[in-house]
């Protein structure tokens, strides 16, 4: 998997024209908007994007305006991956008939955490099993933000949402975040990776690798949402950094089932004293504010314990036992 004539510097990114245009109607400080802008800068030529219903679909295609400078297809919540497999199959047959002049046309399927964790997982699982050549990008803002912050399979344990409010009855969401990237690794697909927008170079390289690989690729991108997380819009990117530093969202990639940590997380694995406490990441986010009250102490300890457990499990999977 060679990343051909490909260098990523801020200058290259700044000089490459935007394919996700300004004037979209995302909230101020939207994490997913940054993610999409950057992902589109890592494309290598003709690209077709298909997107499930979700925040980014709504803000980018309010009639009669569109924020997409590439062919873009909106589809229902559950069918982003099914749509992508259809596009890929159509391109294959058109190429066979000599009707597509490009050497390769990349297909990207985009979905939020609702469209991947919960509603879209069967279409995704099916498309990956059939082995279509496309990149599935999950931008994970950890709840159904667009419809009013309802909990999803991607919402972390203890987070307050409108359908799992923290109060006297329950302390926020009771269940744990589903390890979706590991579920995708279990599909024995060629490329699975997690990325965070703060480590943009790492993220862009992973997008390019996912596009270049033959067969399905899955990219799980962490995308803070200031509206739903009740956090400061200016700190969206900072939270994406803290999530990696506290090992809440470690960065790794799996090539043909072989897991390896990416540089930012590898540095933490090699120097465990650099690993921050989860409180660094949780404080400042309104959805976790109940954890910092006296009665939330137990919950806070539990979140730290589960984060550490998951980190240790990942380390042993990557062959870096501590």
């Amino acid at each position: 998997m060679a990343t051909e004539e490909w260098k990523f510097t801020t200058k290259d990114i700044a000089e490459k024209p935007d394919l996700f245009l300004s004037g979209h109607r995302a909230c101020a400080g939207c994490g997913p908007a940054t993610v999409l802008r950057m992902i589109m800068k890592a494309t290598r030529g003709p690209t077709i994007v298909t997107e499930a219903t979700g925040c980014m679909e709504v803000v980018s295609s309010i009639y009669p305006y569109t924020s997409w400078a590439v062919p873009w297809l909106h589809t229902a919540f559950e069918t982003a991956a099914a749509n992508a497999s259809g596009i890929e199959a159509a391109l294959k047959i058109l190429k066979k008939k000599g009707k597509v002049k490009y050497e390769h046309v990349d297909v990207i399927a985009l979905a939020g955490d609702g469209g991947t964790y919960d509603i879209g997982i069967q279409a995704l699982s099916g498309a990956v099993e059939r082995g279509h050549d496309f990149l599935f990008v999950l931008y994970d803002n950890e709840a159904y933000m667009n419809t009013g912050i309802q909990r999803s399979g991607g919402t972390p344990h203890g987070a307050a949402t409108t359908t799992s409010p923290a109060g006297t009855v329950i302390p926020g969401k009771l269940e744990y975040k589903k390890p979706i990237a590991e579920i995708m690794v279990a599909h024995e697909m060629p490329y699975v990776a997690t990325a965070s927008p703060y480590y943009w170079r790492d993220m862009l390289t992973k997008v390019r690798k996912g596009l270049e690989v033959e067969g399905p690729a899955f990219l799980h991108v962490f995308a803070p949402c200031p509206r739903g997380w009740r956090s400061d819009p200016a700190k969206s990117i900072e939270y994406s950094k803290l999530a990696v530093e506290t090992c809440v969202f470690p960065l790794w990639e799996s090539i043909n089932g072989q897991c390896q940590l990416s540089t930012p997380s590898k540095l933490i694995a090699l120097a465990p004293q650099k690993k921050k406490l989860v409180t660094e990441y949780l404080k400042g986010q309104g959805r976790f504010s109940h954890m910092f009250k006296p009665q939330g102490r137990k919950l806070l300890e539990e979140v730290q314990r589960v984060t550490d457990e998951r980190w240790q499990r990942l380390l042993s999977k990557c062959g870096m036992k501590q």
Partner: peptide, 10 residues
């Protein structure tokens, strides 16, 4: 959609 969102000033 027929217009670029750059026409919509936010």
């Amino acid at each position: 959609c027929s217009k670029a969102s750059t026409d919509f000033l936010t």
